[in-house]
Write a protein that binds this DNA or RNA. Structure first.
Length: 307
DNA sequence: AAACCGGGGTA
DNA sequence: TACCCAGGTTT
């Protein structure tokens, strides 16, 4: 749950999961829709699907017994090197060094390592370095300590070098490289997409949602029928049929003139909502008051709130 | 190796 | 605006 997510952001979700799923059996027996609903707003939804998959795997194939070694943990879907190391060391006292974003920063600065932390070579190098320098006498406290040190003392911006107990032997501080380390390879270019959501209102005031399938963002979450084209007041009358072939629409109303820009880490979504009134009665219509039961992206949840 | 996958906080 | 977050999986 905390992968690429601040503790402060994830805490309320953790408490919610703990309450709804007190045991791994409760999680395994839940529907994916319920798991995604409770995850709504946290992002990186594959984590929720992987968590759910792994809960079912442990219940059905591992006799409900949680793996207790790094080697077995890292086989679980959604569990990589960091998570396996964290669980193995903190929960089971196994000698495994964790390397999260904090540890990369502390090690890169203290030892003056300029290998990119997101390169294949860098990942391998830092794991080896972390393993060599770890304190084995109390691995669980050491691992949590170095992560906390990175979060509070050796922070990404404006680290507290003037009060740092390691300042006398920190290579980055000596060479004036604190602000340049760690080095990270450039991220990929952000793509722009045009989203046009069709909010149907039928004769009895119901609307409809569709579930996102296949690859791409927001897998298995719900949204209004989507047109990903350049849509305007004129061509909407033809284009809508691409997603709503069976619905006869009597009026098209653009809800927001200026695009709502929803920013993901790798995509910017320029979004328009269209209200489509129809005299028909939708077969799979949903009352607007029922929309809150469905797991939806923040973009959709924010729109529903404004209604 | 590079791309993909969210949302929010911070300087 | 740019960067980062108790990363992992897929292409």
């Amino acid at each position: 749950m905390l992968q690429q997510t601040r503790v402060a952001q994830g805490t309320s979700y953790y408490l919610s999961f703990e309450k709804h799923f007190p045991t791994i059996f409760d999680l395994a027996n839940a529907s994916e829709e319920k798991v995604l609903k409770l995850w709504q707003g946290l992002g990186y939804y594959s984590r929720a699907r992987n968590l759910h998959f792994t809960a079912k795997h442990i219940v059905n194939n591992l006799n409900g017994e949680f793996p207790n070694t790094y080697k077995e943990l890292v086989k679980l879907k959604g569990v990589g090197d960091y998570t396996a190391s964290a669980i193995a060391s903190i929960s089971f006292n196994e000698q495994q060094a964790v390397v999260d974003g904090n540890v990369y920063r502390v090690l890169a600065r203290y030892y003056g390592v300029d290998l990119p932390i997101n390169s294949t070579e860098g990942i391998k190098y830092f794991k080896k370095l972390a393993t060599e320098v770890m304190h084995t006498s109390n691995i669980r406290d050491y691992n949590q300590g170095i992560m906390e040190f990175g979060a509070l003392q050796c922070s990404p911006k404006k680290p507290n070098c003037n009060t740092c107990p390691l300042s006398s032997s920190c290579v980055a501080l000596e060479k004036n490289l604190v602000s340049t380390l760690p080095i990270k390879l450039k991220k990929t270019k952000i793509k722009k997409r045009n989203f046009n959501y069709l909010v149907v209102v039928d004769a009895v005031g119901n609307t409809m949602l569709q579930q996102r399938k296949g690859k791409g963002i927001w897998q298995n979450l719900y949204e209004f029928p989507l047109l990903e084209d350049e849509v305007n007041e004129t061509n909407i009358k033809e284009l809508y049929a691409k997603v709503l072939p069976k619905v006869e629409v009597k009026s098209f109303t653009l809800y927001n003139k200026d695009a709502i820009v929803h920013k993901l880490s790798h995509q910017h979504l320029y979004t328009h909502f269209w209200i489509l009134h129809t005299n028909a009665i939708l077969e799979d219509g949903i009352a607007f008051s029922e929309l809150k039961k469905y797991p939806v992206p923040v973009l959709i949840a924010d729109y529903i709130k404004t209604l």
